[in-house]
Design a protein around this nucleic acid. Structure first.
Lengths: 263, 263
DNA sequence: AGTGCTTGGAATAATGTATTCTCTTTCACA
DNA sequence: TGTGAAAGAGAATACATTATTCCAAGCACT
């Protein structure tokens, strides 16, 4: 899944031609199976080398790797849909509210689970574990998540403080040292003020951990360890709910990592 | 599937070299993914052209076609096993932290989803929707969840207040009327003080909504609408994490109910 | 206009695949 | 036992696909 997701996530940061390729692939996933790089290039209207470069930009060795990955995706798509048929009854036979939400939630969690690499997660756990103090800053939409996270950390004996924003923010940052960690949580946007906080922290040698929407945004660029959430498809009011749910899932993962590293 | 079957079927009519290739492919199906015709030839100990001829003899246009066909075979195999093992593969093939947590979480959410009846959920949603004010009281272990819930309600325009406990608790209850709702969230125990609050509220005609561990405990008995969380199996440190996760899931369900009833 | 940066394509190098051709082995038959 | 047809295997080679290099055009900033 990762492959197409990556494409969708990075779509916004792509150049025109790259986007053309991405769109075609996303639309005609199955066609790819029988396309050579040249054919794809022709049908999209770009040069063959652009196709190769596109593949590499996404992190593959070359076009054949991309092709396989895409293919995997939908050879896996049957897999996923098999899984879905499975999971649907799991969330309740009836069309209860729980099951409706469960479906979407599951999807988002799944995507989020796929996007974060184990390395980064363990790095994050290690950073938190070794930190003297942890400042947790969030943009307003993620305040609830941030506070929830803070609670859990405190419960585990980590010296975490939730940054309510405002004037205190700066003085908090200024009291951090290189033994500390700044944890930045933001939702969809890059929130100027958070970037500023992150930069100030880094100047002081503080390790910066970010949880952002998956794609390269300002807040994530200015951090040492980057965790991501895959935003749900535009789903009206539900979007924020689902997004937070995914954020919570990542946070819970960190907590669970801390718990098991404790033992 | 046909592909590997064909090979096995024709094995007897094959020449020595062909059989060598077939055997290798049958044994090392998955390796093929990353082998070029030359590599396969080398590892089997034949010439590259023999590999190509082998592919063609089996009815494929060339080596790449064979390769894809073989790959298809076991991408499809994963499909089948995915169906069999339930939802396990959904949370990531890899043993990342995320996927480990995902498994347990899924289980707990599922149980929780099953236990709550749709009627009760909609009743809860309706109660919240129609309430003038909502007091949210929690025992200490569920404070984080309660606060998270409060945030969401506020965001949706519900006049929710999180009860920090202590002396204020009583005066808050005393200002509620029969248009209001008291929402009680507790974890494992029955928390005396919450029961007391619930009773006092009911005396005043306040509607009481509870989210408790699933079994009849004091707090749940004294409420009008009862929602439950199924506590996870004893799982050491993880238990509280999972329990909260399930609580959150129910809360999110209510929120999503509110969102859709809004439209 | 000038500089540095990014993007995309033409040309080309490198790799991978298919075909041809030749050599060897095998076996039937005189 | 010798001879030739047939089949199999690999070297060499033609062909196809993919990766890289290099250069031109567009663009922001000076």
């Amino acid at each position: 899944m990762t492959c197409l997701l990556k494409m969708r996530a990075m779509r916004d940061q792509m150049s025109v031609n790259e986007r053309k390729i991405a769109d075609f692939v996303l639309e005609n996933t199955k066609l790819l199976r029988d396309y050579s790089s040249q054919q794809l290039a022709d049908v999209v209207g770009v040069s063959q080398s652009s196709v190769v470069k596109f593949s590499q930009k996404l992190g593959y060795k070359g076009y054949p790797s991309l092709k396989l990955a895409v293919y995997e995706t939908y050879a896996g798509a049957a897999q996923v849909s098999a899984g879905e048929d499975d999971a649907r009854p799991r969330f309740g036979k009836s069309d209860t509210l729980l099951s409706q939400l469960g479906q979407k939630k599951l999807e988002v969690l799944e995507n989020t689970a796929h996007i974060n690499e184990a390395d980064h997660l363990s790095a994050a756990v290690a950073a938190i574990r070794n930190a003297r103090c942890i400042q947790i800053s969030a943009c307003s939409g993620s305040a609830a998540v941030a506070q929830y996270f803070t609670y859990q950390l405190l419960e585990l004996g980590c010296w975490a403080v939730f940054d309510q924003g405002g004037r205190l923010q700066q003085s908090m940052v200024n009291s951090l040292s290189d033994e500390d960690v700044l944890c930045i949580i933001c939702d969809l946007g890059g929130e100027e003020s958070l970037v500023e906080v992150a930069n100030r922290a880094r100047e002081r040698g503080v390790k910066v951990l970010s949880l952002t929407r998956y794609n390269y945004n300002a807040a994530s660029i200015h951090s040492d360890i980057r965790l991501y959430v895959v935003p749900p498809e535009e789903d009206q009011g539900m979007q924020r709910l689902l997004y937070r749910s995914a954020q919570l899932h990542v946070m819970e993962t960190l907590i669970s990592g801390l718990i098991s590293s404790d033992q």
